[in-house]
Nucleic acid binder design. Structure first.
Lengths: 240, 240
DNA sequence: CTAGCACCTATAGCGTTGCTATATGAACTG
DNA sequence: CAGTTCATATAGCAACGCTATAGGTGCTAG
């Protein structure tokens, strides 16, 4: 209806589908909307893409190109695990900026198209982890580490997408990310990720006390005192 | 069409929907299939559940009851982190035995119903982690740890569901599980504060925090705040 | 130049979907 | 027994994914 009439119908259909898929807030997108926006009639869609899912697959494929491009466009920083962190962050960012596309790619269960895409993403991650493994930084085989990290990455991204935008907390992502990398790496010295040098015992103790207080209903403090006390406790035990 | 005619239509609708949802391999389930199987006509469905999604929500709610029941039916083994492992495994098992129900619960993006269910699951996990925190076994606040672990748990489960049954490898689950628990727990080489391995109480935690605070001069609190904080801490740790 | 031939697109419509305006029966309440 | 409420059925709408069929376009062959 309002798309560049110069372009071939196939391209117009792709763009219309991508646009509607990105803008419809979770609602279903109909072929009629798509063909109308593309300025084409129904059979054209089915001639080029077979069926609705075929069109969506094509959109996803294009989106995946974008995703892979983003994942590859990192200067290999010489520190493979740092690159893994950036891959993770890029993954999350992709999911948050294109939630619907992401959901079609990773959130659905489509016995055909999904595994291939996931496998590609795994391969990308594994490639990077291979360098880490070569440098003796890996605790487990790269393939298993890649699958594990990617699974956590997808879980975190889905959880963030499902949350209302206003209380999305990226800390969930960084924390899970570093947890996973920490667990699969041999470098348990806690060099890059952790901010806890000497404060860690304070943090641990504060967390423990916080939990204990909430569990045992101590009556040593008045309720207003307790409220303030817990607030401070949270400040101490919180990351920042 | 073949369901117990003694039961009230509402129950028959629920069972029919659950059965069709569980048996249809990812394909969409129509209201006509459901009402036909339940031996009811369309308006009955809409009278009781409002719309199709309302019916599905009811099915999900019932499924969630089952899930929670499974998560609660563990003897608290005295080792909280071990219980977290069992919660994780139970979560994965639930997802693998009821994949479609699981997908509706955790794989979808439904800004209304989903977060509440996820929040419940988080609360369940947090509850268990609170015990670990009270025992000084936690590196991070229980809420954040719960969200992080649950996110990874969901990601792993979705990935396993999406895989062909024949090459599902549960090692992905156990490895990711242990990675996450390992990363958030203090129990690596040396415990920081709660290493007295007995059940830590409010008093013990308060004492530990007190000592740790004085030793490390955290700058999260102003000096006057710190003074009052320490006084309360003293009151807690002194009077029992 | 024209005939044939792929290729691409449109007209029109089929069967199914989620859902509802309306009516009917049953069960309780006064 | 009249009135009201709850629960179910009849019939049908608008929107959906999709397609049988036919018409137009540009190519190459003779």
């Amino acid at each position: 209806m309002s798309l560049d009439d110069q372009l071939p119908p196939k391209t117009r259909l792709l763009r219309a589908a991508a646009e509607l898929l990105a803008n419809s807030e979770g609602a279903a997108v109909s072929t009629r909307q798509i063909t109308k926006l593309a300025g084409v009639t129904a059979p054209t869609l089915y001639h080029h893409f077979g069926d609705k899912e075929g069109l969506f697959d094509a959109v996803v494929a294009a989106g995946f190109e974008e995703y892979v491009a983003g994942e590859r466009d990192f200067a290999p920083s010489g520190e493979p695990l740092e690159d893994v962190r950036r891959m993770w962050d890029n993954h999350v960012q992709f999911g948050l900026t294109q939630p619907h596309l992401y959901l079609v790619m990773f959130g659905n269960i489509r016995p055909e198209s999904r595994p291939s895409i996931v496998a590609d993403a795994e391969a990308l991650m594994e490639e990077m982890l291979n360098k880490a493994a070569a440098a003796g930084q890996l605790n487990v085989p790269p393939r298993e580490a890649a699958r594990s990290i990617l699974a956590a990455n997808v879980g975190v991204t889905l959880m963030l997408i499902a949350e209302p935008v206003e209380d999305r907390n990226l800390e969930l992502s960084t924390m899970t990310r570093d947890s996973m990398i920490f667990a699969v790496s041999t470098d348990k010295a806690r060099g890059a990720a952790g901010d806890d040098s000497g404060k860690s015992s304070v943090v641990v103790a504060a967390i423990a006390l916080n939990a204990a207080l909430q569990a045992s209903h101590s009556d040593q403090l008045s309720s207003s005192e307790l409220k303030l006390f817990l607030e401070w406790l949270h400040r101490i035990s919180g990351s920042s």
